[in-house]
């Protein structure tokens, strides 16, 4: 059974249809990369999957269970599905360690010690253990983003949604965040990543989905998308993006 199935998902803001009848599936431990220009609907799609946006129509099945039916408690879904944002969104009034432990103690009701052990283990894994008592505004963008990923992982999500997590970073900091995503993939984490990093999508993704104007135009393994795309729009987009590099 697929880990995540999205069927005919629709989302509009007023008259502007941002997700047009989107369907796809993600298998366990897969990395799906969403590519497409700005405004193509990548971020909205991810926000819909996490039920941060109210969807207009369609189904979202997690392990076969419909989590999009009206009345489903979004908090139950979000405990199983972590999300990381373009602008990190760390809590500025808390230390790094508190950022990582708050949800564990308040939502999972873990003891302070257990939560802290888990947080320190994650920080160590990302080489950030000496930053545990620092506040977010004293950290580089790359460090903040890695901590945001650690914060999501501290909740033991089954799926991680990553919304353009490297787009706000200086070029020399992009690598450290992509490295983290690669290591998570090795550990078997199921992930959906909206990205502009074509090189990374090509080398690391299991599937790549191209979105254009709110439509999912094409979804295929990266070799196929990048060398022999079926749709003219995909070809056009890729030739423009890849030429620019």
């Amino acid at each position: 059974m697929s880990k995540l199935v999205v069927k005919n998902l629709r989302k509009s803001f007023g008259h502007n249809e941002v997700c047009k009848n989107i369907s796809f599936e993600v298998q366990k431990s897969e990395l799906l990369c969403l590519i497409g220009g700005s405004g193509s609907g990548k971020s909205t799609l991810l926000r819909c999957l996490n039920l941060l946006e109210h969807i207009d129509d369609g189904e979202i099945l997690l392990d076969g269970e419909d989590v999009s039916i009206p009345g489903f408690d979004p908090e139950l879904l979000r405990r199983r599905m972590g999300m990381v944002f373009q602008s990190y969104n760390l809590f500025p009034h808390m230390s790094v360690l508190q950022n990582l432990t708050l949800a564990q103690t308040k939502i999972k009701k873990l003891s302070a010690q257990t939560a802290q052990d888990k947080a320190m283990a994650l920080l160590e894994q990302f080489g950030l253990e000496e930053k545990a008592h620092t506040y977010p505004d004293k950290l580089s963008g790359g460090q903040q983003q890695r901590i945001a990923i650690a914060r999501a992982l501290a909740m033991d999500p089954e799926i991680l949604l990553l919304d353009e997590v490297t787009s706000a970073l200086d070029p020399e900091l992009v690598g450290e965040v992509l490295q983290v995503i690669k290591s998570l993939k090795k550990q078997g984490m199921t992930m959906i990543l909206a990205t502009h990093e074509m090189g990374f999508a090509r080398s690391a993704a299991d599937q790549v989905a191209f979105l254009y104007g709110g439509e999912l135009v094409e979804i295929a393994p990266p070799e196929k998308i990048f060398t022999n795309p079926e749709n003219a729009k995909t070809r056009q987009f890729l030739s423009r993006v890849l030429d620019a590099n």
């Binding site: 926000r47 996490n50 941060l52 979004p74 908090e75 979000r78 405990r79 972590g82 999300m83 944002f85 602008s87 969104n89 760390l90 809590f91 500025p92 009034h93 708050l102 949800a103 308040k106 939502i107 945001a148 914060r151 999501a152 909740m155």
Partner: peptide, 28 residues
């Protein structure tokens, strides 16, 4: 609003988001 999104994505309820994330920042 991104603070609300971040808190909700971690599974915080509306009330918890207010209590732990929004109000402490508001007061300062």
């Amino acid at each position: 609003k991104s603070q609300v999104s971040a808190a909700q994505s971690l599974g915080f309820s509306k009330w918890q988001t207010l209590r732990y994330i929004i109000l402490p920042q508001t007061v300062s």
